[in-house]
Design a protein around this nucleic acid. Structure first.
Lengths: 156, 156
DNA sequence: TCCTCATGTCAACATGGTTGACGTTAGGAT
DNA sequence: ATCCTAACGTCAACCATGTTGACATGAGGA
């Protein structure tokens, strides 16, 4: 025994001594990311996909007819890195590619019905975690959370 | 040209159509994590370390005399995965290991002065991002952020 | 003495990324 | 018509971070 910690180590919020006032917040960012993506990742695993596939599905769902080049730019990865996960999505017909009639150079990507379903299911797992948390603190708390996250995200 | 997006793709907050009310929040979690860790990762890179090394330094700083086994448990990785980054930290004398006099089986880990310095610098980069964000929304906003993140983290 | 715990270490593998190089295809300009 | 170039495809080599499995070592405890 002597497993005082969690059964799922690494997802457990370890009790570490706080050396600075903001250490708790720092750790919350880490565990928050984990907490939001955990159930979605578990679902994705059941359909043989993972986070990079979900990232592609998420973006394509919100930018129908996006080109490969734009997708690379939005995701911030190289075309070679995009190649494998996207090829799988195309092969499994979760994403469809067509060449536009006029701009025949570019490939335009769209989700198929099956792809939409998986994207919605995976993303809704993440949204549910957020919704439950927001419900607990009310609209003002949620707005404050958004404001803080925007400040952090735009840090650069 | 035609680079309407960022110079550092992937760190840029892409403008995606919002299919759901919580899409913005979902994306903020992603970009928030990036925003918090970006400058720390850049600093770590200058000293030849990366995120896993920082994770080790962070935990050991807050649990002096932690054993290898406990460290593995807190980090949630296998001993083999811990081995390489920890070996580097030991070799570079950022972490010191001693066997305890009574519990001679376990190795006890501590940061050296050099290790402490690097840990503090890296972590303070992350804390600065948080502090600036909290300053912008005030104490109540910061408290609300913490409450939401706790709810998300404890989702499981 | 022997079992077991804590640790170390090797090998094989998966995943998600990188750079570099090169090929194809099709518009657009001269 | 020809050539340049943009958008995409693809191969190879590599790196970092993780995984399991197997096995070795060293020291306490029964």
């Amino acid at each position: 025994m002597q497993k005082t910690a969690s059964q799922v180590p690494g997802l457990h919020r370890a009790s570490l001594r706080k050396l600075h006032e903001l250490d708790a917040a720092l750790e919350l960012m880490y565990y928050g990311w984990r907490g939001m993506t955990l159930s979605a990742d578990q679902y994705l695993d059941t359909v043989g996909l993972s986070r990079p596939h979900h990232r592609i599905l998420y973006v394509v769902a919100r930018r129908p007819d996006i080109s490969i080049g734009s997708l690379i730019e939005v995701l911030g990865i190289s075309k070679q890195a995009l190649n494998r996960p996207l090829a799988l999505l195309l092969e499994r017909k979760l994403v469809a590619a067509k060449r536009s009639p006029e701009q025949h150079r570019s490939k335009l990507l769209r989700l198929t019905a099956a792809g939409q379903k998986i994207e919605q299911t995976a993303s809704s797992h993440e949204r549910k975690v957020l919704r439950d948390a927001f419900d607990r603190v009310g609209a003002p708390g949620a707005a404050a959370w958004m404001a803080v996250m925007e400040a952090i995200a735009d840090n650069n």
